[in-house]
Design a protein around this nucleic acid. Structure first.
Length: 591
DNA sequence: CTAGGGTTAG
């Protein structure tokens, strides 16, 4: 109320001359969001004896916050003798907006201690801070405070609460709250849809989007961003394209965020050309947009295109950051661009002053390892600081050992990993695969028993394929579509006639000899491809998404399938894309 | 003389 009255007064002042501002106020305005000038302006305020003027101090504090110096903001705050609700709301808003959620909460507590009642404005900001922190307990208590203060039906507070519960992984609470909103704003819908998406529930995100459309609620660009992200996760290019068409034909502005999600969607659904079209048409491109496009080339194995774009970025684009270099290095790793990768890693440190993290080390080991430079990879690992020797780096080293059948080192690394992360089933699978490659079946058995004793299971692999805008999911030995089995049996026979030889060593260790070919034959990606071939007409591309990495046998089999059926098959596995056509794969067996 | 809420990309 107090605020409203003061707001009205402000209207009367609107015709005042700009120079009616006091010198102290002008000094604050001139300083802008920069710490040093603000300090000088503060000194002036004190000299002029205006240090009790709350309006002036509020402006000063807001700018200090915007300048990114929360320490200075807090110091200034402590000099204010009797802060009012205006000041607190500005501070809470500023800290949560500029990335200081802890301070937002701290100021909120100070506000309560000062016996000043929070408003709906206060709550939206402090709930956002809780969401950023995933601070479930705190958020819950603030939620009850919201109800006590009578703001439970404020639409802004409701949307913030839905987002908060979703970001704290409490999706059912978020949903219950959402369902109870009688008049749902577009932001409430967006909060719930993005909540599903961010927690990996892509289908639920899309389902809610459909429901929203059925009710005639008009989506906005933020809705599209979440839906496109869900499409990207699922590889649902059909829906992705429809969203894109809708955006274009309804004249939505493709801003940086929306453009970047389109790029990401097209790349992860297998269409880099369309992604590049979107990139070229964007009027504003920031570091995130460039990085998305570079990473898109990388996961398709188009290393040269990735490096060319990166080169262009260095000349006329925004400054690359750590994430850009992850994209660049992994593009090099997947395309065998060793020299370029080494160079980029050096530039990252020397030219850009960036500090490589775990991901960069993993990329480098991966790159050297794939290329067969095992000694160099191992030397690189040994040269890292003890603190940088993370399991992820060793896992990359282990992958290289397996790929190049480096038995002794592989066993050594795997045993180290088992000691450090005994709960990670992936390490056991790797170790047993290495033993299997070396023909040490007694050891394979040993590792398998150890895994069982510790109650560990390997991750379940599954694949999806899109037919007529619907996605179908398959897991190994899946019996949901019996009609594909005879087809697949026949198909594999034709592949064998064309020269395909099953790679038995790719089978997981727990199987008996005679079961092996069947286990291979019914891998989820083969089932999904068989289904796709059966249900789509000649000439249509088969697109499959797998949650894990493809095995070597499937990779070889699919090359033959592409010949025997004369079809283009695109498989996205956990790491990258494989475009199969005419008996070869775009990864050139370099994966 | 002060703020003006919630959702969104690598």
């Amino acid at each position: 109320m107090e605020a409203k009255q003061r707001g009205n007064q402000q209207i009367n002042l609107q015709h005042g001359e700009p120079h009616s501002h006091s010198p102290a106020y002008q000094a604050v305005l001139r300083a802008g969001p920069r710490v040093r000038p603000l300090q000088q302006a503060h000194a002036q305020i004190v000299v002029l004896g205006k240090h009790c003027n709350l309006a002036l101090l509020t402006k000063l504090l807001t700018l200090a916050c915007a300048a990114g110096s929360i320490t200075y903001t807090r110091r200034l705050f402590l000099t204010v003798s009797n802060p009012d609700s205006f000041l607190f709301n500005s501070l809470i808003k500023g800290s949560s907006k500029f990335g200081f959620p802890y301070d937002a909460v701290w100021f909120y507590r100070r506000m309560l201690l000062a016996d000043i009642s929070p408003s709906n404005y206060t709550f939206t900001s402090v709930i956002k801070a809780c969401a950023d922190l995933s601070a479930l307990r705190l958020g819950r208590s603030i939620h009850s405070h919201v109800l006590v203060c009578g703001y439970g039906s404020d639409s802004y507070v409701q949307a913030a609460l839905v987002a908060f519960y979703a970001k704290s992984s409490e999706l059912s609470i978020a949903r219950r709250l959402f369902d109870r909103i009688p008049e749902k704003t577009i932001v409430a819908w967006n909060s719930m849809i993005s909540g599903y998406d961010q927690n990996g529930f892509s289908r639920e995100a899309i389902g809610l989007f459909d429901q929203m459309r059925e009710l005639g609620v008009e989506p906005d660009s933020s809705t599209f961003v979440s839906v496109l992200s869900a499409c990207a996760q699922l590889g649902a290019i059909g829906l992705g394209c429809r969203v894109h068409d809708y955006v274009v034909s309804n004249g939505f502005d493709v801003n940086v965020v929306l453009g970047t999600s389109l790029i990401n969607m097209y790349c992860r659904c297998g269409n880099v050309i369309k992604a590049r079209n979107v990139f070229d048409l964007m009027s504003e491109r920031n570091v995130i947009a460039w990085t998305a496009m570079i990473s898109g080339y990388g996961i398709h194995g188009y290393g040269r295109e990735a490096m060319e774009l990166f080169g262009q970025m260095q000349i006329q684009g925004p400054r690359p950051n750590n994430i850009t270099f992850v994209a660049v290095l992994s593009a090099c790793a997947h395309a065998g661009l060793i020299q370029e990768g080494r160079r980029a890693f050096a530039d990252m440190k020397q030219e850009y002053g960036l500090v490589p993290g775990v991901e960069h080390h993993v990329c480098l080991v991966d790159m050297l390892g794939r290329a067969g430079l095992l000694n160099e990879a191992y030397q690189f690992v040994k040269d890292l600081n003890p603190g940088e020797l993370t399991p992820a780096v060793w896992t990359a080293m282990l992958g290289a050992c397996k790929m190049h059948k480096k038995f002794d080192l592989g066993v050594q690394v795997a045993e180290h990993l088992l000691a450090v992360e005994p709960e990670n089933p992936g390490h056991y699978v790797m170790l047993s695969n290495i033993y299997a490659l070396a023909g040490k079946m007694d050891r394979v058995e040993l590792v398998r028993n150890m895994m069982i004793r510790r109650g560990l299971k390997k991750q379940v692999g599954y694949s999806t394929v899109e037919v007529d805008h619907k996605t179908y999911l398959f897991s190994m030995g899946d019996k949901s579509h019996p009609e594909i089995y005879w087809y697949l049996d026949d198909l594999m026979l034709r592949c064998r006639e064309a020269g395909y030889v099953p790679a038995f060593e790719s089978v997981m260790h727990e199987l008996e000899e005679e079961e092996r070919e069947y286990a291979l034959r019914y891998h989820s990606e083969k089932l999904a491809i068989a289904f796709g071939l059966l249900k789509t007409s000649v000439g249509m591309v088969i697109r499959v998404v797998k949650n894990l990495r493809m095995c070597e046998d499937c990779h070889s089999a699919i090359k033959y399938i592409s010949v025997v059926c004369n079809r283009e098959i695109i498989v996205r596995d956990k790491l990258r894309f494989h475009h199969f056509n005419n008996g070869s794969c775009s990864c050139l067996d370099y994966w």
